[in-house]
Structure formats: C-alpha cells, structure tokens
Nucleic acid binder design. Structure first.
Length: 106
DNA sequence: AAGTTGACGAAAT
DNA sequence: AATTTCGCCAACT
C-alpha cells in the first residue's frame, strides 16, 4: 500500500470540516457536504458512520435539527455538556437541536 | 464496469 | 402530518 494514502481524500476532507465546528454549534450533513463543494449529504453520513468516532460527531446533525440516526441519546449528553440549545420534541429522538440558534456557518 | 449501500434531503403522495 | 419515492454522492463488491 502506498505509504502516504491511508484514507480516501473525501474522508479526510469531511473529518477536517467536522473538527472545525465550534463547541456549542452544529452543522447539518448537507452543510458539511456543501462546504466541500458537494451535494452528497449521504456520503458525509457514510463517512461519519465509518470514521467519525474520533471527531466531534455530535456536532453534525440532520436537516431540521434532528440528531444523527441511532445516536440521539449519546448526542444529547454532549449538547447538555457544551450548552448547545435543544428543544423537546414528540418524535422518537425526544428533542430537537435549535438550528436557528446554533447552526455554524464556515 | 455495473450494482449495492448508507449517521441524508427534499418533494410528492 | 406521516410515509413513500426519488435524487445525490462516494466507497465497496
């Protein structure tokens, strides 16, 4: 294997953007894709699923302020800890991130 | 090279 | 308002 290339470039780019999201703020999957000049919100999600464990993954949320699929509970603990504004909701997740208040613009 | 797969998004039912 | 369908994009088989 070539020594200098362990991850696909797109993966590296996604992780770099996520690492830049300030504490207490969030970006949507689509936002992250857009910052990379792509419209692949899903592709970003795939990257997070596979490589997101070592970056602030809870700062990447779905459109509409819903937390990442399957991680509502764990993500909430982080929002509470860093003061990200959330609001109770009647869906499965139980809450919603207040995007209007804390959405990050790179 | 073609088809499958997702921590997604928006539009159409 | 809640589902379903369709569109997108990058990685993997």
């Amino acid at each position: 294997m070539t020594p200098a290339d362990e991850l696909p470039e797109f993966v590296d780019a996604v992780l770099a953007v996520v690492a830049d999201i300030p504490r207490g703020q969030v970006a949507t999957y689509g936002d992250v894709a857009a910052m990379l000049g792509s419209r692949g919100a899903r592709a970003v999600g795939t990257v997070m699923a596979r490589y997101g464990s070592d970056v602030p993954w809870w700062r990447v949320v779905r459109a509409g302020g819903r937390p990442p699929t399957g991680h509502a509970r764990r993500a909430l603990a982080h929002y509470e800890a860093e003061g990200t504004p959330t609001r109770p909701a009647a869906d499965e997740d139980g809450y919603r991130i207040d995007l209007a208040a804390c959405r990050w613009r790179g």
